[in-house]
Amino acid sequence: MTAIERVIRILLGGALLAAPLAHASDDLIDLRDAPPVRGDAVAGKAKAAVCSACHGPLGVAVVPTFPNLAGQKADYLYWRLVTFKRAGDADSPMTAQVAHLDDAAMRDLAAWFASLEPAAGTNGAAGMPGATIYRDGDPARGVPPCQGCHGLDARARVGADDAARARLYPVLRGQHAAYLADRLEDLATHPPHTSTAHVMAPIARTLDAASIEAITHWLEAGAP
């Protein structure tokens, strides 16, 4: 055996030992080609009794820091539950809630809340400052128009037919302003490890307090 061959054998042996050590799992939740979420809304209704304490019996929360779930996208709701489960954040009230939910239960709940009538919203005016940012974005700061993903009417019906985006991006219309502000802050500071969070987190960081205030109040107003 020549010296080169000896060296090669040693390195190969070392490499094969190192291979399992080199393996690292990437726990990104890749939603880019996630299949559609289907669940049984009737079964979901049965399991939703606990949820109504915070989120209201018809999915419209009373406390403004809790989100309205009625009429929200099923895919969005399902993956939100999944991220709560994965994150296991002790500070979040949802962690305990999802702990005993299995995958089927999460799908069913998502389907149930998606089937509910969305919140009507308060009376708002198209002239609210938030409307401008929502519709046109803020090019000077690098904020894209929210309507691009969340739809012109904030119901996340995007212009052309684009299946994945239409399913995953949440309805914002009629959502509580306080909740939205909290959510944006969460995204800015400790976003979940999903592919869509990679898009929203930098946007959330770019939005300043005044913009957030304007947008969230306009969304709550539910104005078109």
Binding site: D26, L28, D30, R32, D33, A164, R165, S195, T196, H198, V199
Partner: peptide, 11 residues
């Protein structure tokens, strides 16, 4: 790059 081409869509 294991992350792919874009965060907006797969493939």
């Amino acid at each position: 790059d294991a992350r792919g081409t874009s965060w907006l869509e797969a493939g």
